[in-house]
C-alpha cells in the first residue's frame, strides 16, 4: 500500500471544508472498494479524509413520508431495517442478493453509489484502461468482455456499475442528498451517474467539493408488486451478468405504473421510460412484458464474448415483470 496521510472529519462541515481544500484527497467511508483498488495500485491517494465519524449512520422517516438512509448506514442495516423490509422489500432483496455478508456489513450507502465501475481490466495495471489511465483505450472492447456493458458504452470504456442496491434505488427513483460549500442539495438518482463518453474517469456528477449525506427513499415503495432477479455465473464471488428490479402498480390485472431497472449491463443502472410506458394499461402477459424488454434493449450491443447476455437480459426482465405482477402470493 502506498504511504499516505489521513484526516479524520468529525462533522459534515469539516468534511466538506477538507474535501474542498484538497482536490487530490479521497474520502473513505468503509473502504471496501477504495482499499481494494489501493491494494492493486489502481488508486494512489496521497491523503484520505476519513468520514466514518460523521453523524450520518441512522435511518429515519423523511418529511415526505419516505425513509431517509444516512450515507454511512451499512447495506446490512438497510436490508434488515424493519420499515425498509416492509415498505421497500425491493431494496432489501437487492442488497441481500449481492456481495457477501461481511462486505454488506461494511459497505455504506454513500460508498455503494460511488463504487467504481468494474471490468476485467480496470484493476489490472498491465492492460490499457481509459478509466484507470485516460487515453489508453479499453482492452475489453476487443478482448475478454463477458461482464462488460451492452448498453451505453463509449468507444473508450465499457465497464459496468456492479451494485445491486443501486438497481433498486434506480427503480424506486431515490433521491441523493449532497452537501457542499454552498449548502445541501438533492439530486435525482437518474442524474447522479455519468455516461462514460469521453470522460469515463468522471463516473458521477458529485462535485469535487461535496459529499453524500443521505439517500431518500420516496414514499412509494411498490411493496405489493415488485421483484428483484439476479443472474450470475455462480452464487458466490461473482458479479451479476444481469440483474433486474421490477416495480409495478396494478389495478386488478392491469399495470397502471411500471418501473424497470437493469443492472450489470451499463455504467449505471439502466432505465428506459419508453419501455416502461409500453407496460402501462397492459396486463403482464408474456408478449406484453417481452415487448417492454425488447424496447429497453433496442440499442444493446454485444462485443463478442457475451453473446448470451442480451437474451439473458430479455428473459430476466420478462420473468421479473411477471413475478412482480403476480404479487406477494407468487413469490
Amino acid at each position: 500500500m502506498t504511504p499516505l496521510s489521513d484526516t479524520r472529519a468529525g462533522d459534515v462541515a469539516t468534511a466538506v471544508r477538507e474535501v474542498a481544500a484538497d482536490g487530490a484527497a479521497q474520502c473513505i467511508a468503509s473502504g471496501t472498494n477504495l482499499i481494494d483498488l489501493m491494494q492493486a495500485h489502481v488508486e494512489r491517494p496521497s491523503r484520505l479524509i476519513d468520514l466514518t465519524r460523521l453523524p450520518l449512520a441512522d435511518i429515519r422517516p423523511s418529511a415526505d413520508g419516505g425513509r431517509r438512509l444516512g450515507a454511512l448506514v451499512t447495506n446490512t442495516d438497510v436490508a434488515y431495517d424493519a420499515p425498509v423490509e416492509r415498505r421497500y422489500p425491493l431494496v432489501s432483496k437487492a442488497i441481500l442478493a449481492g456481495a457477501s455478508p461481511p462486505l454488506r456489513t461494511m459497505a455504506t450507502g454513500g460508498g455503494t453509489l460511488l463504487q467504481r465501475t468494474r471490468g476485467d481490466d480496470v484493476d489490472d495495471t498491465a492492460t490499457p484502461c481509459h478509466i484507470r489511465q485516460p487515453g489508453t483505450g479499453c482492452a475489453a472492447i476487443d478482448g475478454c468482455n463477458r461482464l462488460h456493458a451492452i448498453l451505453g458504452p463509449s468507444a473508450q470504456a465499457s465497464a459496468v456499475h456492479p451494485s445491486d442496491r443501486c438497481v433498486a434505488l434506480a427503480a424506486l427513483e431515490a433521491v441523493i442528498r449532497l452537501t457542499g460549500p454552498g449548502g445541501e442539495r438533492a439530486l435525482p438518482f437518474a442524474a447522479f451517474h455519468r455516461p462514460p463518453g469521453d470522460t469515463p474517469p468522471l463516473a458521477t456528477n458529485l462535485a469535487a467539493d461535496a459529499i453524500i449525506t443521505a439517500v431518500d427513499l420516496p414514499p412509494k415503495g411498490f411493496a405489493a408488486h415488485h421483484a428483484y432477479l439476479q443472474i450470475r455465473d455462480r452464487t458466490s464471488d461473482a458479479f451479476a451478468l444481469v440483474s433486474v428490479a421490477a416495480a409495478l402498480a396494478m389495478d386488478g390485472d392491469t399495470i397502471t405504473a411500471a418501473r424497470l431497472a437493469l443492472g450489470g449491463v451499463a455504467h449505471q443502472p439502466w432505465r428506459d421510460r419508453d419501455a416502461e410506458a409500453r407496460l402501462k394499461g397492459q396486463s403482464a402477459t408474456r408478449d406484453h412484458v417481452q415487448r417492454a424488454a425488447d424496447a429497453l434493449l433496442r440499442d444493446a450491443r454485444g462485443f463478442g464474448h457475451h453473446p448470451v447476455t442480451i437474451e439473458l437480459a430479455q428473459r430476466a426482465m420478462g420473468r421479473a415483470l411477471r413475478r412482480a405482477a403476480a404479487g406477494e402470493a407468487h413469490r
Binding site: S30, P102, D237
Partner: peptide, 23 residues
C-alpha cells in the same frame, strides 16, 4: 487481500467484517 475469499474475517463490535479491506 482483496475481499472475495473471506479468510481474514474477524468480528468488530460483534459483527463480521473483512480485515483486509479496512484500515
Amino acid at each position: 487481500d482483496h475481499g472475495p475469499c473471506g479468510a481474514c474475517t474477524v468480528l468488530v463490535d460483534g459483527r463480521r467484517i473483512l480485515a483486509c479491506l479496512t484500515l
